[in-house]
Amino acid sequence: MDRAALFDVDGTLVDSNPLHVVAWWEAFRQDGHRVPTRAVHRAIGLPGEQLIDHVLGPSGDRADAARLGAAHDSLYGTFFERLEPFDRAAELLRALAGAGWTVVLVTSAKDRELSALRRALDADDAIRETATADDVDQGKPAPDPLLHALSLVDVPPDRAVFVGDSVWDMEAARRAGVSCVGLLCGGIPRADLMEAGAAVVYEDPADLLAHLGEGPFAVPDPARGRDR
């Protein structure tokens, strides 16, 4: 039976979190909301409406959310051609695919954003499927995106590992019954990721690549009769 390596993208494989923070901060400012960038940063990784509720409180209406979301999308879109992957991110995905793992991207990014992220990452040859928040009723930290991703490749939760950079990623994995690896490159402290459910935390994709022989990716595979 296959194993699945599930990956968040923003802040995990691509260095885009600071750009999202700036875009959301400016969208809030243009709409008359003065919010600290740290509050926005802590909410990155949530789908748009949930992010807005997390930052402003659940008092706005759908028109407010649509207006803020459209402003963010327009502002963030100006960065598409400047997106950069983290060091060795593509190599990490290819190493896992080459070792027999089924690689799936699980992201809150919309289709246009995801296309830009995949161009920056340049590792489509290693990616089997993608799952976005638009595919399910509830985004992270609900387990729905991860469970949907697993359904696409017919892999059960106990044969999957999810790699992410936010507490929302860790909580979603824990609730889905999937082992989770945290990365610090998204800017969230190690203690927060561990408390939210990370089995282990690495600095970035390059650090994880250097330690693939340890932790969740090194669990024995009975189907192959050896460790991966």
Rank of each mutant, 00 (worst) to 15 (best):
119 R>N: 11
211 H>K: 12
131 A>F: 07
18 P>G: 15
6 L>N: 00
29 R>I: 01
150 L>N: 06
41 H>Y: 02
47 P>K: 10
42 R>V: 04
5 A>M: 12
29 R>F: 01
166 S>Q: 10
9 V>I: 07
178 V>D: 07
141 P>Q: 04
147 L>W: 08
124 D>E: 14
20 H>A: 06
75 L>P: 01
228 R>E: 05
160 A>G: 07
38 R>M: 04
106 V>C: 15
56 L>M: 10
137 D>G: 14
68 L>F: 00
69 G>Y: 00
214 E>I: 07
3 R>G: 01
84 E>I: 00
39 A>Q: 11
41 H>E: 06
69 G>W: 00
135 D>A: 13
53 D>A: 10
111 D>G: 15
71 A>G: 04
39 A>P: 08
56 L>Q: 06
47 P>I: 07
170 M>F: 05
146 L>M: 10
212 L>F: 09
6 L>D: 04
137 D>M: 04
142 A>D: 11
91 E>I: 12
219 V>K: 05
150 L>S: 06
168 W>Q: 14
43 A>Y: 05
171 E>Y: 08
222 P>F: 05
102 T>Q: 15
70 A>Y: 00
166 S>N: 08
42 R>M: 07
219 V>A: 14
81 E>H: 09
83 L>Q: 01
173 A>Y: 11
208 L>F: 01
159 R>G: 14
227 D>A: 11
77 G>H: 03
218 A>N: 05
209 L>M: 01
3 R>Q: 12
196 A>G: 04
26 E>I: 09
80 F>E: 04
127 I>V: 15
211 H>V: 05
90 A>R: 12
32 G>M: 03
176 A>Y: 08
156 P>N: 08
59 S>T: 08
178 V>P: 06
7 F>E: 10
46 L>Q: 07
78 T>H: 09
172 A>R: 13
179 S>A: 14
102 T>H: 15
213 G>I: 02
40 V>G: 07
157 P>Q: 14
64 D>V: 00
68 L>D: 00
26 E>A: 13
90 A>H: 14
223 A>K: 10
174 R>W: 08
30 Q>D: 14
74 S>H: 02
48 G>F: 01
144 D>S: 02
217 F>I: 05
28 F>V: 12
189 P>F: 01
185 C>Q: 06
211 H>D: 10
227 D>F: 13
113 E>Y: 12
22 V>L: 13
83 L>I: 03
93 L>C: 12
226 R>E: 10
120 A>P: 11
124 D>W: 08
9 V>Q: 14
211 H>C: 11
140 K>P: 09
